[in-house]
């Protein structure tokens, strides 16, 4: 970071400014609010992946699969064709629990693996989940998806279904809760254990930390958060969407959110979600619509901005890894503890 005072002020206060902006934006119209709500959902999913990949250093290439687990659990709990119909809030709770259990089940055998092998196992797990959801069409309605799922609701408040602002503020509140949760977890004993295991597993073990237990908890919490986001997304769209929406490419988009902002940094994930999802679902879509309206796209595949999505996400990954692997906002604790010899063993 540069030491220029303006940059310092921006770096210090952009989260406050952002919060102020998102609080007042819906007053200017529902159109902006409808675009921003998915970004909040993906920010929550990004926070979930950040617990696993950022805090604990385990590359998870199946984040979208946990979103799918959340979305389909929520759908099965709330759609009219099943007898449960437990409503929005209990549905969210069940989705989080099922996501956390699924994460633990995946992590149990995978704990023995090294970094890149673990990444591939999570990738395979993600593929299996989407395939199973697609093929068990007796339960999941295959590619049609389950609908209509329960819409978001605020307890003790009744409002018309068509009003969008309550949903917007509800989702913003849920995102703030998730941010607070991640921030506090990072500062807690558990969070410091995650960082310790990530930076030096051997040293952490000799300090009395159990790496396996620490990683398992990270997977359970991270997967629970991803499932939470998936359930919120299903509720927002009124459908579980379809299995192939949650494929490997979606997982990489979520990974981009975490990497671009800065692995292991809660603020970074929010910025990453704003940049990547905002780019994908607002800028590219609107640019494409605008160009089509003006007749500039024709039938030319290159002239359609939304076709450049993979190129842009891919280049973002390559360039970030090469130029700034710690992300736009580096976490404050990226240096391995071993580089500070005098204080290395002083604090657990």
């Amino acid at each position: 970071m540069s030491d220029h005072p303006t940059i310092k002020i921006i770096a210090r206060f952009w989260p406050h400014a952002l919060l102020a902006i998102v609080l007042v934006l819906p007053l200017f119209g529902d159109a902006i609010a409808t675009k921003l709500t998915p970004i909040m959902v993906f920010a929550i999913v990004g926070l979930g992946l950040n617990v696993v990949a950022g805090f604990t250093g385990l590359l998870n290439l199946g984040a979208a699969a946990f979103m799918a687990i959340g979305a389909y659990t929520f759908a099965i709990c709330t759609v009219p064709i099943y007898p449960f119909q437990i409503g929005f809030w209990p549905g969210l709770g069940v989705a989080i629990m099922v996501g956390a259990v699924a994460g633990t089940i995946l992590a149990l055998p995978a704990m023995r693996l090294r970094g890149d092998y673990l990444a591939i196992v999570t990738l395979g797990f993600g593929e299996i989940i989407t395939d199973v959801l697609k093929n068990l069409d007796a339960i999941t309605k295959g590619t049609q998806g389950l609908n209509p799922v329960a819409a978001p609701e605020i307890p003790f408040v009744t409002y018309s279904i068509s009003a969008y602002k309550p949903t917007y503020y509800l989702y913003l509140a849920l995102l703030l809760v998730a941010i607070l949760l991640c921030h506090n977890m990072r500062k807690s004993r558990l969070g410091r254990q995650w960082i310790a295991v990530r930076d030096d597993e051997l040293a952490a073990r000799s300090m009395g930390i159990s790496p396996a237990r620490t990683k398992l908890i990270a997977f359970a919490i991270g997967s629970g958060l991803c499932a939470f986001g998936g359930a919120m997304f299903a509720s927002l769209n009124g459908t579980s969407i379809e299995p192939s929406f949650y494929d490997f490419q979606q997982s990489v988009v979520i990974l981009c959110i975490v990497i671009v902002g800065g692995m292991g940094n809660v603020k970074g994930v929010i910025l990453g979600a704003l940049i990547m999802v905002g780019f994908n679902s607002i800028i590219l879509v609107n640019l494409t619509e605008w160009m089509t309206r003006n007749g500039w796209t024709g039938n030319n595949v290159l002239a359609t901005p939304s076709n450049w999505k993979f190129m842009i996400f891919g280049l973002a990954l390559i360039l970030m890894m090469r130029l700034r692997p710690q992300g736009l906002i580096p976490a404050q604790d990226v240096e391995p503890v071993t580089q500070k010899p005098a204080t290395a063993g002083a604090t657990p």
Binding site: L61, G115, V301, N307, F310, G314, L315, L317, M321, P325
Partner: peptide
């Protein structure tokens, strides 16, 4: 670290997928 290169490889894969799509168009 090893995972940095793996992420970079995924990025290359995405770029190529996009080029393949353009090529088909």
């Amino acid at each position: 670290p090893k995972l940095t290169a793996l992420v970079s490889a995924i990025g290359v894969s995405f770029v190529f997928i996009n080029i393949g799509m353009f090529w088909g168009g």
